[in-house]
Design a protein around this nucleic acid. Structure first.
Lengths: 302, 302
DNA sequence: CTCCCCCATCACTTTTGCCGATGCAGGCGA
DNA sequence: TCGCCTGCATCGGCAAAAGTGATGGGGGAG
């Protein structure tokens, strides 16, 4: 019962050269190894396959047996396949074709993905980009599991085994209804909102972040509502249910249901939230990933 | 400039196992090597290809990168190809399918090939037999050059580097025209024909053989005609141009042109000519060749 | 916090591949 | 026919590679 093939690609290539040149000596010169290396390799190959491939005619070099001739024919195809495989593998790492999977934190997605995908698509039209949206944990797991290679995230409790590169910072701001007493102020301190009910964007790590901001400003927020939807939070604020702290700012004030919400700059010395491009550290980035990172840097850094 | 692929089939198989089982440890157990062997092999493969294929998650085994996933897909096809190649090669040596090239001395061919091909074809219908006919030297060169693997020959000055197996013996006989003075004798001594002109079958080694027979019988033949065609010799004899010495005996006396020739047994103590099956010694015979040899033995030995 | 799982790494051993030299056998020219 | 030359096989020695078992680190799970 012949189990699995125990020959080597090297042996196959040696045989190929010898068969094509009709001489082990010539093959040895071409490949830059000794003639004995060719000899033993071919012998091993023949023994392994159980077929005699070459006929050694002492002073007249080699000739192929019928079996050798047919094998040679198959072999060419096979070695081509081997080269193709190498080629494919290398290009998987370096070429700017194929596909690239990126992750994106869900509330960040509508703000930056359109531009990024547009510019990346223009620069590298041969690369198909597949986006995974989700909360920070989900995206982080996707990174770790290899489902995606890059991710746009807030640097909120990211595991240290992720390499991150800060692309931009998103300072927190307060969102209040237009009829709020401070709606016209332009800027407030969080303490000014201490008595107002708060609407919290309730995503795994975000909730802690917003709470910590409030605490840092010295207030204990009275949470009235929670929602996992950014737009719902805006709508609740617009409807007068309370104020919210957010980081991303839409270009207009109108909510889906026609309400309006007013953004107020915060004068507290609060840390801005870094928007980072994260990668699994220790994983060699593909060329596509590097290209995408470059586009991100240019688009968001400027 | 990526020269040529420097990975190993073994490395590929190790990677396949690890990727499929999601664990190097498991792969190691299955393949019966140590875990470290898998680890280093996969690492080398990745370095060689320049692509990261697996993500190592410390306590949770492995997961494939996107590149690894795609590579794995290609790889399966490739390893199947490798198995096919092995399979093909092995069957080239052992299977009773494919083709078999045999050589045959030209004057022997019409006497034994029909039966041999018929019986071999019945026993091994999947093997296509390709016959090369020619004089002894031609067939011998075909053997040496790998053009054919077996040959039916007279053992006439065959090189000692050929393995031969005697299948039958063909005693020489004299052929005379019907009106010859000894045509009714049934048997003669060569000396009785010493004065008759001789017709010689003029093939590279045959001519010397016929001459040596005559000399051995103590006569110096008077050669009237030479021909490279067996049937021409018969016809010349039938037409009264002289006598001939031959080994193969057709079932009837009539020549192509309607003449008749009479065969006379020779009472001289002359060596019979061995009909041999010749192979290049030191060349491993394929299964097909062995099967053909067996058919020859059975058909001609009986 | 502890245990356990899984992979990377290390030192060591075994195997393999290669080299250079030598031997052998056949073609070929003198 | 006799060397000479060519071309492959083989051998001893050596270096590179692969494999082994042990160790360690990092991270999940209870």
């Amino acid at each position: 019962m012949p189990k699995d093939a125990n020959f080597t690609l090297v042996q196959l290539r040696y045989f190929l050269a010898a068969a094509e040149l009709g001489s082990m000596t010539a093959a040895a010169q071409r490949i830059n190894v000794s003639q004995s290396a060719i000899s033993t390799a071919v012998t091993h190959l023949e023994r392994e396959l159980g077929v005699q491939l070459l006929i050694r005619r002492h002073a007249k070099g080699l000739s192929l047996t019928r079996a050798g001739e047919r094998f040679l024919h198959e072999l060419r195809g096979f070695l081509t396949h081997a080269d193709d495989l190498t080629e494919a593998a290398r290009s998987l790492g370096t070429d700017l074709v194929g596909e690239l999977a990126v992750g994106c934190f869900q509330t960040l997605a509508p703000f930056c993905l359109p531009q990024l995908l547009r510019e990346f698509g223009r620069a590298h039209p041969a690369v198909r980009v597949q986006v995974t949206e989700g909360d920070i944990r989900t995206v982080q797991d996707a990174l770790r599991g290899g489902t995606c290679e890059l991710a746009l995230l807030y640097d909120l409790g990211l595991d240290p085994d992720l390499d991150r590169e800060v692309l931009a910072v998103a300072p927190p701001y307060a969102l209040v209804p237009p009829e709020h007493r401070l709606a016209g102020a332009g800027a407030v301190r969080l303490a000014d909102l201490a008595e107002d009910p708060m609407i919290v964007l309730d995503l795994p790590l975000s909730r802690d972040y917003f709470r910590s901001l409030a605490l840092k400003a010295g207030i204990e927020p009275r949470v009235r509502h929670r929602s996992t939807s950014y737009e719902t939070v805006r709508a609740l604020v617009a409807a007068g249910h309370g104020f919210a702290i957010l980081n991303q700012r839409p270009v207009h004030d109108t909510t889906y249901d026609g309400g309006r919400a007013v953004a107020l700059r915060l004068t507290d010395p609060l840390p801005a939230l870094p928007v980072v491009l994260a990668r699994l550290s220790g994983v060699r980035p593909t060329g596509r990933a590097q290209a995408f990172a470059a586009v991100c840097r240019e688009a968001m850094g400027a």
